[in-house]
Design a protein around this nucleic acid. Sequence first.
DNA 1: ATCGGAGTGTTTGCATGCAATTCCGGCTTT
DNA 2: AAAGCCGGAATTGCATGCAAACACTCCGAT
Lengths: 248, 248
Amino acid sequence: MRKKSESPDAASQTARATLLLREMVIDGHFQPGEHIKEIPLSAKLGVSRIPLRLVLERLAHEGLLEIRPTRGFVVQQFSATDIYDAIDLRGVLEGTAARLASERLRDSRDLLPLQQSIEGMEALFQPRKLTLDAFTSYIDLNARFHASLLDLSHSRILRRAIKHACSLPFASPSAFLLKQHFLADSRQLFMIALEHHREILDAIANRESMRAETLAREHARLARRNLDSALQDRELLKSVRGVKLIEL
Amino acid sequence: MRKKSESPDAASQTARATLLLREMVIDGHFQPGEHIKEIPLSAKLGVSRIPLRLVLERLAHEGLLEIRPTRGFVVQQFSATDIYDAIDLRGVLEGTAARLASERLRDSRDLLPLQQSIEGMEALFQPRKLTLDAFTSYIDLNARFHASLLDLSHSRILRRAIKHACSLPFASPSAFLLKQHFLADSRQLFMIALEHHREILDAIANRESMRAETLAREHARLARRNLDSALQDRELLKSVRGVKLIEL
DNA sequence: ATCGGAGTGTTTGCATGCAATTCCGGCTTT
DNA sequence: AAAGCCGGAATTGCATGCAAACACTCCGAT
């Protein structure tokens, strides 16, 4: 009884269960601090305890669960400070990426991907009214900018560190980009983000490493501002991914 | 057939095998790039494949192994650049710890642990001749300084990031502290390190956050200098932990 | 009333064995 | 000769079942 005419997506049990359980934890199917019981959960997910154990271990490495030797796994809780710190940490790491990018730049043609994502964003803001599609594109272009910046740092080690830091649901560059913000008047923040991107590119192109680092750090702080406004609006807060893990 | 009158240390099979295999990989029992075969290895370690799988997964998260879905695990190789980057990354993160420490300092008595490790080091350098015991104490005091600095940052998130970054064998604060250096004339670097510690403490005490960050970053660069001199001396290089994983 | 400890039930830790996939050698085909 | 192809061997992925460790309760002793 295994992968035969089973679920169409499939891959491995472990891979499937990882996606499932990660979403469950982030969506708050467990209380923060709750002890996870393997047997009921394996029944619920439809996998046996062996792959489930691997999944739990993986999510613990991502920071969603805490591991207690011989006593299983517990769902993590995050304080507001944790979230601010996670955002700042990303700022520090992306600042390092920007600095290394400016220090290690060889050929200015390597800046093309950054340039393109900036141009893509500029095009999005041309029309007066912003659509939901534009929002989706924005998320994508934003992710591309950050990925290209990391590429330019030419550092596997930094890539690893950023991947790890962003595995927390609140830390990623798009964690607090909410469509409500985008569609409402408060598109100012998006324009400011775009301006940051331009300046970061400029700093790298001119090999102004300190300026590049500082700008990238400051850029991450936009996430704090989005978080702050979400924290003040009950309705808005609900659309924040992982909000159930936050201790308010 | 399980933990009965077995090995006296024990704990769990997984814990034992983790320690064993980690040392084996770092000591170069495998070629970088080599594919690890579960069955022979589980026989060699005396554990079954289930705990071994957990161990492999864990070492992959630490960065020693690369994971290839449905194709097992492969031993990582590191370039000289990777090592420099890992050291720099630690510098960046400890710089952040120092900055946060200075920004978040509440009570100057919290600085006592830093002060104590500095005084301990000063005592070590009083006698003319340095002993092997002194070297061991130095390693310990150094670790304590770095741990206390991290405590002062009051950031779980940063703690997590530093732990992850330092899980690579080359990145930890004591990775390139070699007893040969310590005992030879070149104890200058140790005095410089001590001076850095003093200045970092001073910056934190005065809430000079930028100075604290910059100093802690520069402090990490001492590891680069130790690495450089190790790279120029075949004999010395041999005593570097994990050297077999470095592509020269 | 509190503490210690035996007995019981629940949960984690692991070994075995089988299914499915990948790898690899030699073979056929063009 | 190069490319594809087939079949067996090696290897990973997983389910089951059992043993050890822990949590809990109840009882007796101080």
